[in-house]
Structures are given as C-alpha cells and as structure tokens.
Design a binder for these strands. Structure first.
Lengths: 219, 219, 219, 219
DNA sequence: TATGAATGAGGCTTCATTCAT
DNA sequence: GATGAATGAAGCCTCATTCAT
C-alpha cells in the first residue's frame, strides 16, 4: 500500500547513497500522489510537488524524466495496490457473494487511500498512458474471474465478449458511485448500505421483473 | 440539438442590435462546443474559441464573465438535447424494453453529436459545476422513470434510494462503455451488439445464477 | 538604416492602433538589435530584450512567433542596409578603385552601425537561417559586380566559380579585419590606413613577386 | 594530433596515481573535443562531456576549474597541432608556392581533424580567451614567415603592419572558404580545385588588371 | 580523487484577462 | 458592443556548480 513517508529525515536515518537516492525518489512520488489526490493532475505542478516533497525543483528531474512520466506512473502503481487489496478481501463463497465482496472492498480501498479516487478518475485525460495500462490490468483480471465463475456454473449465458462489456459497466458503475457517495463534506466516507444492496440485487436477479410469459411484444 | 452556425454573416442577415448580440454569443458558444468536443477542455483556450467563432478575444468577455463560466454551460445545454433525443426514441413497450431503447439511444446520440462524449466525460474535472448540474438533471429524470416502472409493476423490491444508486451505476456504465466502444480510429462508431445484449441480460435477469436453494453458506 | 527609437512615447505621439502596433514591434526589434550588438545572441534573452524595449515579456509574442524568429530577421534586415550603404559610396572610377571604395565603406558602415559586427559574426551559429540568407544576398551581388568588371576588361583570367571563391575570401577577410582593427577599448573605430593599403596592393598586384622567368620549379 | 582515447581502461593499464590523474583529465579533454566538434560549444554541456568521457560530472571539477576554462583550452591545443601539420607539409620551393602549399594543407588538416572547423569557427564567441590566444599564435608565426619571404626578395613593398593585415585577411579567407566549401552533406570534404587556383592567382598577381599607364583617372 | 544527487537561477512560452480606442 | 494589443503570472525544463560520502 502506498504510505506517507515517515517524518524522519534521511540524515537521521543514516542511509547510504543508494538508499538516500531511493528515499528521495519515493518522497517525490508520494508527494505527487498526495497533491494529485487532493488537487487533481491539472494543479499538480512540479513546483507544488517538489515543495510538498521538500526538495528543489531541479531535483525532480534527477528522478523522473519529466512531469508527465511521473504522472503516468501514479495510477498503475496504486492500481496494483488496489487489486491486491481487493483480492485479499475476497473469500471463497459463492461467486455472486464474492462479487459483492469485491464491490464493497473497492469502496473500502477508497477510504484507505483517499487519493485513489481522483487519481483514477482524472487519469483518463491527464495520464492517458497510465490509465490505459491500469484499465487493461483490471479488465483482464476481472474477465478472468467471470470466466472462472462461468466454468464453475455460477454464471450462465454470457459470452466472453459480453464479459468484457459487463466488466466495463462494473468499473464505470464504481466510478460514478464513488464520486456520488464516497464524499461527504470533503472527507471520504463509507458507502451507504442501500448502494450495496442495490448492486447485489442488480447482479443477482437483474432490475426488471419480466412479464410472466414472453408475449410477442419482445424482440 | 446544437447546430453549427449558418454560414451567413450577421450583416447579411440584417439583424437588429439585440439579435446581433444573441447571434454573436451563439457563435462563441457553438465554437466552444466544437473545440471542446474535438480537443478537450484543456485545449479550449479563449484564443482558440474566439478564432473558431471568428471574433476578437475581447468580444468573448462581452458575452461571458470568464472562460470557466462558458465551459460550465456546455454540458447542461447539450445534456438537455440528449435527454430529449432519448425520450423521443423511447416507445411504450414493456419497461425493460424501454430501458434497452434508452441505452441504445444514448449511443445513437453520441454518434449524432460526437462532441458530446468528450464534453461529458471531461466535464467532471474541467467544468465541475456544469457537470453536477447535468448529473442532477439526468438522475432526477431517470429515477422518476424507474419509479413509474415500479408503480406499474415492472420493477419490484427496489427502494427510492436504491434507484438513485442504480441510476448512477447506469450512467457510469454508459460512460465507460462509450469510451471503450464508441471510438474506432478516431471516428465515433456504433457500439457492438454484444454490448447491448450484455446490458439487456444484466438488467433483466442479473449476472449470476444463484444456487437452487440458499444453503447455510451465506453469512 | 536601423535607427534607435526616438525617446518619445506612443501616447505622446498620438498614434492610431495600427501605427501603435507597428511602433511596438519596431521597439522590440530595435531593442534586440541593440542587445545582440552589445552582448551577443546568447545573452539576448527575451526578458532582456523586452526590458530594453520597455514592454512586458508577453508582448514579445504578440509580434514575433518566438525568440529565434526575431533573431533570424536581424542580420538580413541590417544586411540590406549595409549593401545600400556601400553602393551609395561606390563611384564610377576604375573597377579596382571601386573595390577599394567598397572595402573602405564596409568599415565605415561598421562605425555607423556598431551592432552590425557582432550580429553578422555570430549569426552563423545563432541565426543560421538569417545568416545563410544574408550570405546569399551578398555573395550573389558581389559576384555580379566582379563579372561586370571582367566584361569591362578590368579583370582577366578568373572563372565564375573562382569569383565565388574570391568573394568568400573577401568577405572572410573583412570579418577578421574588422574584429582585429575596428575595436579599440570597447569603442568602434576607423581601420588604420595600412589595412587599406595592404588590401589595395593585394588585389591589384598580388602579394608575391614571381621569379623573373617561370623555371621548372612550378607544378 | 589530438587522438581518440585508447579503448583501454586505466585499471587494465596499471597506472600509478599521477598517471591515472593525467589519464582522466585527458579523457575529459578528448571528450570535449569530440562533443564540441560534433555539436558545437553551446551543446557541450558538462553533463554531455562527462558522459562521453565516462566519468561523473563531479570529476570534471577535479580537473578543470569550470566549464569555460576547459573550452578555452580546446582551440589553442588543437591549433598547435594545425600549425605543426602545415609546417610539415610546406616545402622549400619558391615562397609563393609555399603559401599555396600552406593554403592547401589547411584544408587537408580540416579533413584530418574534422572537429577543428567547428572548434575554430565558434571559438570567437564561446571561447573568446582561447580564440585570442590562437589568433596571436598563428598570426605571429605567419607574419614571421612573410617577413622572411620579404627578406629573401620574394615579397616586395609591404610593411610589417601591412603583413599583419594581410595575415588576417588570409585567416579570414580560410575560415569563410572552409565553411562554404568543406562541408558536403554533413561530411568534411576536399575543397574544389578552383578555390585553390583562385587563391593562387590572387596572391601572385592580384585580382585586377590595371590600366596600362596610370592616367589622371585617379582621384 | 571519484561520485552523482541536490541546488536554484534563469530561459522560453502560454494564456486568461484587461482596457483604451 | 467589438477590437486586439498589452499584461504578467505561472508552467516546464536545463544546466553549471557544489558538496557530502
């Protein structure tokens, strides 16, 4: 999990040159995470990031090729944390139940790493490369999960292509829900229960009750 | 529907002062729509917009307080067009079928007004005010639709609060799907059939087949 | 001839918009001439130029695409002045005498426009485009002059290609001589007479006295 | 002649401390020669030079006071090579012939050491001190040669001061000619014959044929 | 002596906004 | 109301030089 740097200086910690170097890079990276999470990519100027990191602007370029290159690393790095976080919280119960667990874990992760939300959502426009990378990561893994569920008989009647579409619906849903429900007065909060229950109902029995017998009305 | 300005100058059209004024404002607005749709908010500088509109930079500030104020109007305005477009294409069939029609109509609208996609997706970060306004518009209307479907017996077992959550899932799904499937080599294209079918299945019967009888496995 | 701007403000001069615009551009151009002449291209930052011109840095970009574009215009512009200056000082005497006049006029011009020397000499490296343009201008005109002298019988035994080489020798000679003899304690001064006389002898009778009869020693 | 460093490391060569030190300095120096010759002084950053030399940036400052100090040594050092090179190729024939030999040898040297051209030509502006030093070296030696030719009766009617002027003309001529004729598609090439012949004619019989008898045409 | 990260001044350019005409 | 030049803050990045290890 991405951690804030300990409030201890490199000197006090008696690091050697290599460690010192890594430590500085990490500080810049963490500062960027913080700034982007708080103000968004657009406001994450090199000046602001380095100030937050407590280093000179020039130092930035000793560790990253340019501003964009750093920004592009932000999402994939945290994204990996997210995937791991969610996996750790997914049990071995029935597939539908697991999906609910994943859904809930996503919102838990957001509370754990509040920066994630903004870093994820803005990435499409400000860090396209990193965004694509993240999306591929997640959707591939997600489709695999669904496929296994189908193999196990927990899902029926969906093709692989449809899985991909479903996965995008799920990801999109999470994004919108988190923006709508995870913020309360500036703080990141838990999602209300009715969001969870709505999701659960949707994925287990759908939204609509169809008429008793399919009449000729349907396509 | 947002229209491109006619290729006729105000002088030729013999407009009076008030009309002339409105006409200029409209040209700037349409130019902004075009520019943002094509290059995104970040690239939509006042210089670029006014150039596209064929007026001087200073003129911009005779019609809009500042750049942001114009950008904030973009999405709500075009969003109203979208809602109307979709309503016009929704029949009187069974509620589930109507939802599929709405879903399809959304992607049709995107092809009709290609600028919409980018204006919508980026708005959250570049035109937060307008984005919120649009979201409220759409979700209110959407919830009302679902409520009516429930009243008509086409939906069962969802509370009003859950409807709101569902609506956000739907909106988010559309956003992600459009970004994933509506672009092909720069052009805006129709969404593949399997996306439609996946959505249809999801909302009518859910994703997962539950075990025959709920055993003690559940928490 | 490039002139320093009058010490009168645009306001006092009651210029209209177009004149005002041209006046500002001119002020920037003249400031650049002055700065480059005094400190060289490398030190001619936009900040320095605009400060000298008394305008804001941003104003620079209302009149020139970028720094380089302005620098590239410097030499050709002054170069034209130089050619005119020299032509005006060339009489109708014998061709050899005219060449001496041109030679002298070159050094006179340098005193008239002290910035020229540095602008010319550094241009090759800092304003390659402008330099090439200037060189072509001058060498074409110069070759034409020599050709006419040959047609008039004042030169004999040189081919067109050789003329081009000769012209480059002459231009190079002037450059080196000016750097060596035109500066005295920071000020630009007249070239000593012996420079003129040496040049005159060189071009009229060559440097070396050949042995009475060409013996077999020659290739 | 400036040589590329042997591809053998100091360790392999088992050098002692002093030798090792000199060896490192030499590597930096040679790297600078190469970089400046290829990219020019302006692009010859300390970072680039040390990278080429295979040492750390800090090492640079153990051997040279600062960047400029190194740059200032470049031309004088290589200039000495040039003088030696030319002297070795100058025979004992008639003075005029010797001068042609020197002229040709200059262009031969440029092909032998392609870096020289750029180092020489840019030095005036980027390494003024070194340039002045080089100029003094060369012109002093050159004037001495001419004086001897005069003593030997091969030159007549030129004063010492005029010699100095002549020498500057010759140096300038070479500079311009080399820039004009020594480059062909990026590579350094031989100068065309007509350049040599034009020079030969100029210095042996001058450019202009004077009217049979000096008539009253002169002012 | 060698290293290479850290520094911070300074360079170029963009752009929203103002204001005199 | 329309114009468009002027403004100046702010952004990204480079680079010579220093210094602790």
């Amino acid at each position: 999990m991405t951690q804030a740097p300990q409030n201890t200086s490199a000197k006090v910690m008696k690091l050697n040159r290599v460690e010192r170097n890594a430590w500085t890079k990490r500080r810049i990276f963490d500062a960027a995470t913080k700034i982007v999470g708080k103000y968004g990519y657009a406001e994450a100027s090199v000046a602001r990031i380095t100030e937050e990191a407590g280093v000179a602007q020039g130092t930035f370029y000793n560790h990253f090729e340019n501003r964009q290159q750093l920004l592009d690393q932000l999402l994939p790095k945290i994204g990996v944390d997210m995937v791991r976080f969610i996996r750790e919280r997914t049990g071995t119960a029935h597939a539908a139940k697991q999906e609910i667990e994943r859904f809930g874990a996503f919102f838990d992760f957001i509370r754990e790493v509040p920066e994630f939300l903004r870093i994820l959502n803005e990435a499409e426009f400000f860090a396209a490369t990193g965004y694509q990378k993240h999306l591929d990561n997640v959707s591939t893994a997600y489709v695999r999960i669904l496929r296994r569920a189908r193999d196990a008989g927990a899902i029926d009647g969906f093709s692989d292509e449809e899985f991909e579409a479903i996965v995008h619906m799920f990801m999109g849903a999470r994004g919108y829900l988190s923006r709508r429900y995870s913020y309360t007065e500036g703080a990141v909060t838990a999602v209300p229960d009715h969001v969870i229950s709505a999701y659960e109902k949707l994925i287990t029995r759908g939204l609509f009750t169809l008429p008793a017998k399919g009449n000729g009305d349907d396509r």
